[in-house]
Amino acid sequence: MPADMDKTDASVGARAGLRGLATEPGVKKPDPILVATNVSRSFGGLKAVDVDHLEVQRGVITALIGPNGAGKTTFFNLLTGFDDADSGDRAFNGKSLNRVSASKVARMGMVRTFQLTKVLSKLTVLENMRLGATGQKGEKFWAGPFAFLWRKEEEANSDRARDLLRRFKLDAKESDFAGSLSGGQRKLLEMARALMVRPELVMLDEPMAGVNPALKQSLLGHVKSLREEGMTVLFVEHDMDMVRDISDWVVVMAQGRIIAEGPPDSIMSDQRVIDAYLGAHHDTDISELDKAALEVEAMAEIDTLKKEGR
């Protein structure tokens, strides 16, 4: 456990609840916010998701990792109502999510971001953020034409949006069209916009892909602070440093199934996980691997040149 845990941290209890749990797939959590049972989804002959049982502990940061094509995004889609499962039950806060529409799921307090970002490029950054606020009176047809009915609320939402934009280093871009943002900035905007919904559970699909290292560090801090505010985070990520740094619990998927789950340290040394996903060199310094790869490449090039007789 990280040493920065302090007494005001609301997640201390939640994290303590994970201690001593068996590290086997489908293990019961003391206080689950999200439960999935026998959820499956096939595309033609391919079984993209086939999860027997998964519980996500409330108030902690859970990472979902696994090789490309493991079914992580599909599983996200099934949980959030963007895709229909062939079978199985999903429940959020004890309420069933079966056949609940995606927008209803979001209103229940479970908001996701997309691996391929979905910012609304023809709206400004600030408008994107305002769109995220729920329960707006101004979004009602009858109230729309009468600005005096919603102006106050709009200002309050704008203030909150600007706070979040500052956190995500996008405040200078507030009046730019979202379409003019870079790939990494779009990721940030999407994450900030999801928080406008005031979710209980945020589900981030590869939030750090394309974000530069310095900003990544500060974002890690933000994600941790979400946890301290009592939010639950479930995220998909390929960056193992990030997973190791912030997650309290790691779930590993491969070929649609959950093959392991547990605290980060024990997962990283689990032989099945190393075989299926991490690879034997996952602990080696990247630069050494790079050097080795470059050498191999150089040798190959010299070989071909020789063969061509130059």
């Binding site: 959030t80 963007f82 529409s101 995606a102 927008s103 209803k104 979001a106 209103r107 908001v111 996701r112 971001t113 997309f114 979905k118 910012v119 609304l120 490029s121 023809k122 709206l123 769109l131 995220g132 729920t134 979004e139 916009r193 999801a194 406008m196 919904v197």
Partner: peptide, 16 residues
């Protein structure tokens, strides 16, 4: 106007 551009993004933010 957001629906015109990307329905799923709007759905993910809780709009019907």
């Amino acid at each position: 106007k957001s629906i015109r551009e990307d329905e799923d993004a709007v759905r993910s933010l809780g709009k019907n």
